[in-house]
Simulated scan of single mutants.
Amino acid sequence: MLGCAPHAGKAHALDPGYLDLRQLTQGTWQVLWRVPDVNGQPMDIDAVLPAQCTPSHAPEPISDGVAWVSTWVAECETGLDGQTVTIDGLERQRNDVLLRLQPLDSETITLRFTPKLPILTIPDHPSIWSIFISYFRLGFEHILAGWDHLLFVFALFILVRDPWRLVGAITAFTVAHSITLALATLGVLKVPPAPVEAVIALSIVFLALEILKHKEGQIRLSEQYPWIVCFCFGLLHGLGFAGALSEIGLPSQDIPAALLAFNVGVEAGQLAFIGCLSLAILTWRVIAPLVTSGFHSIAAPITGYAIGFVSVYWLVERISGF
C-alpha cells in the first residue's frame, strides 16, 4: 500500500495525500487513493481521473487506522500521457498530494500536486528537475512536520553554544542520516520502525540530560565533540526518515536524484529551523537586553527539563506500543 509512516503513528492534517496509478493492461489501471485523516474523517479532497477513465472518481474510502483509502480499477479509453488529473478541493487545504504513475511500458513517474497546483498534466517523460523539486519539498516538509526530529535539533541548538561546533554537528547529523536513509529506502537495511522511533526519543532524552549537566566554564564531551554524538544518533534518525519514502517509492530511472533531493530538503528544513531560532534569540536580546542577561542563567535548565519531559513521554509511549 502506498503511504507514509508518521512519527507518532497517527496521521495529521499536514500529512500528504497519495494517488497511485498502476497500469494492469493497455486500457486498465489499478487506482489507490489515500486521503489524510482530519479529526476522524477523510479530508475533503477527491482525486479526479481524466474524462475517458471510468469510473473517474473514487468509491467511499475506508479507514486503515492511519488514513482513508479507496481502491478501484479504472477503464481508460486512451493512454494517460498528456491527460490531466485533478485533486478536487486541494486548493482549500494546506496539504500536498503525491501522484505515482506506473505504466506498463515506461518508467515510474512521481509528480506532486499542491494547493496552488491542483491540476497536473501527465508528461511523456518527467524531467530530473521536476523529480528533484518533488522530493526536495517532501524532505523539507517532512522535517518540519516531524516534531521529534525538530526537538532533537532544538536540543542540539541549546546544548552547543559554539556556532562552528553547531554547524559541524548538523553536518555530521546530515551525513549520518543520509547513509541510513539510502540503505533503508533501497532495502539494504531493514529495521522494525517501532524500536527506531523509541531510540529516536531516547536520543532526545540524552541531549536533555546533557543540557541539565552543563556548567559554566566546563565543556562536556558532548559539547566539545558534538559531531560524534550527532553522527551516531543521525544513523538512527535516518531510519526514521526512511518511513516517508519506504512506501511512496522512488522513481526507478532517477533514484540518486530523488534520494539526493529528499536529503537536501531535510537539510534545508533543519537549517531553516535553526535560522528561525537564531533570529528569535537575536531579536529577544535586542528588545530586552537587561531581561536577557538575568534570564539566560535559568533559561537553559528550564528548557532542558521541558525537552526531557516531552522526550520521556514519547519514549514511554513508544515502548508501550511495541
Score class of each variant (00 low, 15 high):
143 I>H: 02
190 K>D: 15
11 A>M: 05
279 L>H: 01
307 I>W: 02
130 S>D: 08
107 E>F: 12
227 W>G: 05
222 S>R: 02
226 P>M: 14
123 P>R: 12
74 A>T: 01
192 P>Y: 05
99 L>N: 11
191 V>N: 00
227 W>P: 03
107 E>D: 15
225 Y>A: 15
169 A>I: 08
170 I>Y: 04
148 D>G: 07
87 I>H: 08
307 I>R: 05
129 W>T: 04
315 L>D: 06
174 T>R: 01
293 S>A: 15
100 R>V: 14
196 V>Q: 01
43 M>Q: 14
262 F>A: 00
85 V>P: 03
109 I>G: 09
9 G>L: 07
184 A>Q: 03
5 A>F: 09
157 F>G: 01
264 V>C: 07
191 V>R: 04
303 T>W: 05
46 D>S: 14
271 L>N: 00
246 S>A: 14
281 I>V: 13
189 L>W: 05
192 P>L: 09
25 T>A: 14
137 R>Y: 09
293 S>F: 11
83 Q>S: 14
194 A>W: 08
127 S>R: 02
33 W>P: 00
283 T>C: 13
250 L>W: 11
20 D>C: 11
54 T>S: 15
9 G>Q: 08
218 Q>P: 00
102 Q>W: 00
136 F>H: 00
3 G>C: 07
221 L>M: 13
306 A>V: 12
162 D>R: 09
136 F>L: 07
220 R>K: 06
130 S>L: 09
180 T>M: 07
95 N>D: 01
245 L>V: 04
17 G>V: 03
97 V>K: 06
24 L>S: 14
113 F>K: 05
293 S>W: 11
18 Y>I: 12
210 E>V: 01
44 D>A: 15
235 L>D: 07
107 E>G: 12
102 Q>C: 08
278 S>C: 12
21 L>G: 04
58 A>N: 03
151 L>A: 07
283 T>F: 12
7 H>P: 11
194 A>K: 13
101 L>C: 03
258 A>D: 05
89 G>Y: 07
237 H>Q: 12
188 V>W: 13
90 L>C: 04
123 P>H: 11
105 D>A: 15
214 H>V: 03
282 L>R: 10
213 K>G: 05
262 F>D: 04
47 A>C: 14
178 S>D: 00
319 I>M: 07
69 V>P: 00
254 D>M: 11
